[in-house]
């Protein structure tokens, strides 16, 4: 039993470090004044994140987060927080889950959605900031990817419809966007995205 089994951990050493010593957590006593705040996930799904940012001249100058979730969810939020403090809003908005995962030294496949949550949470905070500033969101279009080519439906459009609750089922989504009604090639990809967003935004 005294062998080195403690050194062989479930996740990478970086994940372990961020899980054991999470950075920029929002301690209850701290009165953190934020300019934007976003929340994704749900307790029922087993992971939920709240991210608050301070913005100055379109740069994220500080960030605090709270996460309910597993080790990789905590580590993903912690890593994301380190990466984006000092980053411009546009770059931060474009931060991809893959970049977070890479910085963590990788995550097991079934944990990838943890890093997706981190990235969505950050975007939600930036969205909130821009709404509060009464500014249009100039970043959204750039990150949008067309999924249904026939009817020009983007991943961002699907995300927004799930997030707002307008599309509660795939049938709702089809009725609203007409995705997949022409060539039908995108159907499985849309279904996959829908499930993913449903997991992130269902409350």
């Amino acid at each position: 039993m005294s062998t080195n089994f403690m050194s062989q951990w479930v996740y990478s050493p970086i994940v372990k470090d961020h899980f054991m010593n999470p950075r920029n957590t929002w301690v209850e006593e701290e009165n953190f004044e934020f300019d934007g705040i976003g929340e994704v996930g749900s307790l029922a799904c087993g992971d939920q994140m709240r991210i608050a940012i301070q913005v100055k001249d379109d740069v994220i100058v500080d960030l605090r987060w709270l996460t309910y979730g597993c080790a990789s969810a905590i580590a993903s939020t912690s890593m994301m927080s380190e990466m984006v403090i000092g980053m411009g809003l546009e770059e931060a908005y474009n931060l991809s889950p893959a970049t977070i995962t890479e910085a963590l030294g990788g995550l097991p496949d079934h944990k990838f959605h943890c890093s997706v949550l981190g990235d969505k949470g950050l975007r939600a905070a930036i969205d909130d900031y821009l709404v509060k500033q009464k500014r249009d969101n100039p970043f959204k279009k750039k990150v949008a990817k067309v999924i249904c080519e026939c009817n020009n439906v983007t991943d961002v459009a699907i995300e927004d419809l799930v997030k707002s609750g307008e599309a509660k089922t795939l049938e709702d989504l089809e009725r609203i966007t007409k995705y997949g009604t022409v060539c039908g090639k995108c159907k499985s990809e849309v279904a996959e995205l829908f499930d993913q967003f449903k997991h992130i935004y269902s409350t």
């Binding site: 999470p22 957590t25 929002w26 301690v27 929340e39 939920q48 709240r50 709270l66 996460t67 905590i74």
Partner: peptide
């Protein structure tokens, strides 16, 4: 438990 609750959404 206290530590995890402290960094959890609340």
């Amino acid at each position: 438990i206290k530590r995890l609750r402290g960094m959890s959404t609340r």
